[in-house]
């Protein structure tokens, strides 16, 4: 059983109390992200904001970016900044230390967090957001304040209601201090080094050696699973159950080459996998 996510637009705009927030979905290809940001910012309804009345007119010359946990190199960040053209980047919101460090090196204020998008936050929070939106709709039409921004609601892509299984592929090694968080499954095509972390609402599969921490089913889904090709003593969690690297506790004499970990009643269950088996 895995967690599923509806397809969402890669880049969405959100009016907040502090101005316009541009949320960029982490799994969106970087080049596409740049393109979409430019397209979205060029939308006419935004230019209306700046010449419109004072009430609730969002300043489209100054935006913030919510980058989730996307890790940007200096070069990519520079390109992202350039792609904004005249628009000033007021701040960056990110859960990635690297991205924040890079942003700060460009003199841009970077804070930890992920505010904007439902797809950063998984099903539970998406539900909350839906409820909030519902409540807003029901509230008496407030003057301009929320209307002027006209945050473009992403048109539901075809087949959005039949939910799509979201899996994030990471094709590199996660080094100490790096963390990937995803509201779906994660496949890591590389090593999980000591001091790094994976946190998924769904399953986690790692093809390299595992020395960092894994939390599968992090929103309480005890049906999530972890699969490792080369497990070393570390901390594994599925939903609320925790294993801290003790072989005896895992019912193992040695760490098997490949192992599937599931969540049993009150502990984690380790099933060594044989070659060719599943």
């Amino acid at each position: 059983m895995t967690h599923t996510l509806p397809l969402l637009d890669g880049v969405t705009l959100k009016g907040t109390r502090h101005g316009l927030l541009v949320c960029v979905r982490e799994d969106l290809d970087f080049e596409l992200a740049l393109q979409q940001i430019q397209e979205k910012l060029a939308l006419p309804l935004l230019t209306q904001g700046s010449d419109g009345g004072e009430s609730g007119a969002f300043d489209n010359q100054r935006i913030s970016l919510d980058l989730g946990w996307r890790e940007l190199s200096c070069e990519s960040f520079a390109r992202l900044k350039d792609s904004l053209g005249e628009v000033e980047l007021a701040g960056v919101l990110s859960t990635s230390l690297q991205t924040r460090t890079v942003a700060e090196s460009f003199g841009i204020k970077a804070i930890i967090g992920r505010l904007g998008l439902a797809h950063h936050q998984g099903r539970r929070l998406r539900q909350e957001q839906r409820e909030q939106e519902q409540a807003e709709k029901e509230a008496p039409a407030a003057p301009a304040d929320s209307v002027a921004v006209a945050v473009p609601e992403p048109a539901p892509p075809p087949g959005a209601d039949q939910e799509q299984e979201a899996t994030l592929y990471i094709k590199r090694t996660l080094r100490s201090g790096q963390k990937a968080v995803y509201p779906g499954n994660i496949v890591l095509w590389g090593d999980l080094n000591p001091g790094s972390e994976l946190e998924a609402e769904g399953d986690v599969l790692v093809l390299g050696s595992v020395r960092g921490r894994i939390h599968a089913g992090c929103n309480g889904n005890s049906e999530a699973q972890i699969y490792c090709q080369s497990l070393h003593p570390t901390v594994l969690r599925i939903a609320d159950e925790i294993w801290t690297g003790d072989l005896k506790e895992a019912g193992l004499k040695q760490l098997p080459a490949a192992v599937k970990v599931t969540c049993a009643k009150d502990k984690l269950n380790f099933e060594p996998q044989t070659r060719g088996g599943s």
Partner: peptide, 8 residues
């Protein structure tokens, strides 16, 4: 190394 990689 993670930080150096991010800095290209």
């Amino acid at each position: 190394v993670g930080l150096l990689e991010a800095a290209d």
